[in-house]
Amino acid sequence: MKLNYLVPLLCLTTAAAYAAPETFDFKDPKNVNNAVFKLDAPLESVNGSASGISGSVTFDPQNPGATTGKIVIASESLTVPNPMQKEHLHGPNWLDVANYPEITFEAKSLASISTTGDTTTADVTGTFTLHGVAKEITAPVKFTYLKGRLGDRVPNMKGDLLVIRSTFSINREDFNIQKGKFEDKVANEIDLTLAIAGAAPTP
């Protein structure tokens, strides 16, 4: 009689544990995570990337619509190959990295969710903060849930991986970065491409 209750209870507990949302840490030990930025002005194009990525995302493969999280990019990690451009980029007239050390995106809600296999696409709305200005934006995001693949990346570790990819654009004038100035050399529109992987280790 007792067994009749115990078995379903055990199954339910196991299923609940299996489907529980996981929190993925995006501080990548392999330093592969990156955000690429491109500005294409009539006279000059600026291409660079940022590698100082951290933050966490809570993702439930059974319920991706409930995804929440915050991704942080260290402003200091933004790099362009030309040293003078980099100096200007970090300087007080542009990103002012000394006063605004972080660029963040905090997810609030997901819409147009579609899941195929281990891949979920959605339009994520959240708060994007750059140069001390916070603005609500919506970006198309692709989540790839790699169950049990953490060990393939980091030896002696078990757990899951979550890969997030997104491409979207922002306008620098919306974030009070040299509004209306130098648009022939530094485009107002900034194309951003994010490719990051987070890990959720299991004990």
């Binding site: 392999k30 592969v32 590698s51 790099t79 030309n82 003078m84 451009q85 790839t144 992987a197």
Partner: peptide, 24 residues
């Protein structure tokens, strides 16, 4: 034909996640 560069981008593919890591 661009400005002088003192570093170049090197891309390395992470085979597990498919992400192309960027280093200079």
């Amino acid at each position: 034909r661009g400005w002088t560069k003192t570093s170049v981008k090197v891309e390395t593919l992470d085979p597990v996640t498919g992400i192309e890591g960027i280093t200079y």
